[in-house]
Computed example of a mutant assay.
Amino acid sequence: MRIQPCSHVPAEIHAPNSLRGCEECLRMGDSWVHLRLCVHCGHVGCCDDSKNKHATKHHAVTGHAVIQSLEPGEGWMWCYEHESQVG
């Protein structure tokens, strides 16, 4: 699968707001499966395999289109608007 460029990927990727975990899950005292970084603002949320799906909820509220995996050894990005992996 060839990774396509995407106009939603910002020129500057924001650093994570939290390196401890999903911001909302931490406040709730809940757990997550994998972490995703909003490259637009640095929000750290849990993935769609997590019960709370905070990364997707963040997109729904803010319109920020692109997330990046924060899992060790991964660096892929996903665009919610194009529903595809982007670079």
Rank of each mutant, 00 (worst) to 15 (best):
M1L: 12
I3S: 11
I3Y: 11
Q4F: 10
C6F: 06
C6L: 06
S7G: 10
H8Y: 14
H8E: 15
V9N: 13
P10R: 15
P10T: 10
P10H: 14
P10L: 10
A11V: 06
A11T: 13
P16Y: 02
S18I: 03
S18R: 04
S18G: 05
R20F: 10
R20Y: 06
G21Y: 08
C22M: 12
C22A: 01
C22K: 08
C22F: 13
C25E: 12
C25Q: 03
L26R: 09
R27A: 09
R27W: 03
R27H: 07
R27M: 08
R27P: 02
R27T: 05
M28A: 08
M28H: 10
G29W: 04
G29Q: 05
G29K: 02
D30H: 13
D30M: 09
S31W: 11
W32C: 06
W32H: 14
H34N: 15
H34V: 14
L35D: 02
L37E: 00
C38L: 00
C38Q: 01
V39K: 00
V39Q: 02
V39S: 01
V39M: 01
H40A: 01
H40C: 00
H40W: 05
C41Q: 01
C41L: 00
G42F: 01
G42S: 02
G42L: 00
H43D: 00
V44K: 01
V44D: 01
C46F: 12
C46V: 12
C46P: 07
C46I: 10
C47W: 08
D49E: 14
S50R: 05
K51D: 10
N52G: 06
K53N: 06
K53L: 03
K53G: 03
H54E: 01
H54C: 07
H54F: 06
A55F: 01
A55L: 07
K57G: 05
K57N: 07
H58N: 04
H59I: 09
H59S: 14
H59E: 07
V61N: 11
V61K: 15
T62M: 09
T62G: 03
T62Q: 07
G63T: 12
G63L: 10
G63K: 12
H64K: 01
H64M: 03
A65N: 11
A65I: 07
A65Y: 00
A65P: 10
A65H: 03
A65R: 07
V66T: 12
V66K: 11
I67H: 02
Q68F: 11
Q68E: 08
L70E: 10
L70A: 04
L70K: 01
P72D: 15
P72M: 13
G73K: 09
G73S: 14
E74T: 07
E74V: 06
M77K: 15
W78Q: 05
C79M: 08
C79N: 09
C79F: 04
Y80K: 10
Y80C: 07
Y80V: 07
Y80F: 05
E81F: 04
E81L: 11
H82I: 12
H82M: 12
E83H: 10
S84G: 14
Q85T: 05
Q85R: 04
Q85M: 06
V86S: 04
V86L: 03
G87F: 04
G87V: 08
G87A: 13
G87H: 06
